[in-house]
Design a protein around this nucleic acid. Sequence first.
RNA 1: GCCACCUUAGCUCAGUUGGUUAGAGCAUCGGUUUUGUAAACCGAGGGUCGUCGGUUCGAAUCCGACAGGUGGCUCCA
Length: 593
Amino acid sequence: MANNNPDDHIKSVRHSLAHLLAATVTELYPGAKNSIGPAVENGFYQDFETPNPISDEELPKIEAAMREKLKTWQNFTRKEVSPDEARKVFDWNPYKLELIDDFAKEDKQITLYTSGTFVDLCRGGHVENASEINPKAFKLTAVSGAYWRGDQTKQQLQRIYGVAFETEDELKKYLQMMEEAKKRDHRKLGQELDLFVISDIVGSGLPLFTPRGTVLREELGRYTQEIRSKRGFERVWTPNIAKTDLYKASGHWDKFGDELFLVKSQETNDEFVLRPMNCPHHIQIYASQPRSYKQLPIKYMENAGDFRDEKTGELHGLSRVRSMTQDDSHAFVREDQIGQVASEVVDAAQEMYSQLDMKLKFRLSFRDDGDGYLGDMALWQRAQGMIEDLAKENKLDYFIAEGEAAFYGPKIDFMATDALGREWQVATVQIDFVLPQRFELEYSTADGGVAQPVMVHCALLGTIERFLSVYIEHTGGKFPIWNAPEQIRLATVNQEYQTNEFADKILAQAKELGLRVNLDNSNESVGKKIRNAELMKVPFTVVIGEKEIETGELMPRIRKDLEVNEKHEPHTVEEFLKSVANDAKSRVSKTSL
RNA sequence: GCCACCUUAGCUCAGUUGGUUAGAGCAUCGGUUUUGUAAACCGAGGGUCGUCGGUUCGAAUCCGACAGGUGGCUCCA
């Protein structure tokens, strides 16, 4: 199918390569059966049942065979067939037979595509001629397992992934981007910059934060609270466990029972749950007193530890953990306040992410027809309508995703784009009519009656751990002054008494200003000390020796990515420290030095 | 949990087809040096080769189980 849209063309190239891969593998591995093979972002894949597992060492061999075969291919020819004809062609392939049965049931026209000697069941979307595929612009990248039709209970197939582009150059660029992503991998930087560790004996998915990593956590945690504090949220503190009854009442027990960590009291035999989320706790604070319409909205926030027993195969650095910290907040509002409160938190998120130098997109996550959602349809529709109105009013860059809702209500999910152009789900705002109902929350109305509040859940960072994984990769570990674990490194030239005395004085002054500063007075060369500070990506390194002692002026060395006005001016100790302290306080990422 | 692959010193990695006391760089420690903007010099310590079991005269190397990790799948309130 000829197409002038370049996006569609590369898709056809990728899809055609999936055919080529299927043709090559079924030939190279007798008995191999291909199932499906679509074009995906940046490339394609094809699933196979194979007599023996294929290992990634075999990919180059397959790739070479693909290039050979490509030479023999010309047109993709299309043929419409009846289900029975198709069954005859694929009598050897149970996956295709299953698909044919499904298509027959749906009364779909069945089409076969032939290229070279390879026939596949396919609805189309190929290049017209195989010569449109650049043999130097694709590469097989990985082999993995994938369930037939994405169903865990079904046969697991071998999936071979490839990437493909129009030109060799684009492929090269893509591979370079992947290299850069590897360099910035938060697990790698987490170790190199000494931010967090994961200990086997503590357990997988349970990251331990070092002093440096803890600074980051706490600076971000403080920021997310400050930004909401300005908007009337009050801090609360609640414990990490609660009786199972709380989660039975909230519905979390049924919804994801096997992901809950259970804790048993040896005294009373009572069962507790390590909390997977904080809403029920906050609800109990709301419910502890009679509330009046005059008090609403009541807004609580807490950077709260949560625990979820994720399956081990799903754990990944800081982005998927078993112990996490949500910068959670819950507003209990009257129905007429939903819009106002929700747009407040949307506004908060926008302020925050612009400060963090990340672009935001908004996904309106609505329910689909499936079950597993609590609350009646009318409530859902009302809430979803409100969310969409809100997105329109705030002129958000949004799209709607059905089936992405929480079980208790629809949400706005915030997708942040990082420095490498990758999108991550971070913040979320959720409107919830269900939990207030389950916990029978109420407030007295102006006319002496009672009404049910609505809950607005919101986490700006999402979880601090997951956000850190994104943020570390976004910044590449070059943190801005305000949250840099170490802001200033003092490097002495020698170990003379006067040098140390002067350095100690600066150190004390800096600490007085609340700066995070370290002194390196080890017996190393100045070059080595600079290098070490540079490797740790410390924003300012200050060499201290005779010159500085004499003049009382410092010549700070500034990390390259920080924008400065007057780089090489000497500054008095006081000027320098105050300016760094100001930049940290106002959370600027460039510096006024 | 499932599929493939991986696990050698604190870190990054060598270690030939199974064959004596398992190596290097960085880091650490000791000494010399007292240093001016990205790596001073010399020396030392550090490993039950992830764990347990098996095959073998002999295992870091081959096989199995378990643990941890990587890439996916499934899941993701």
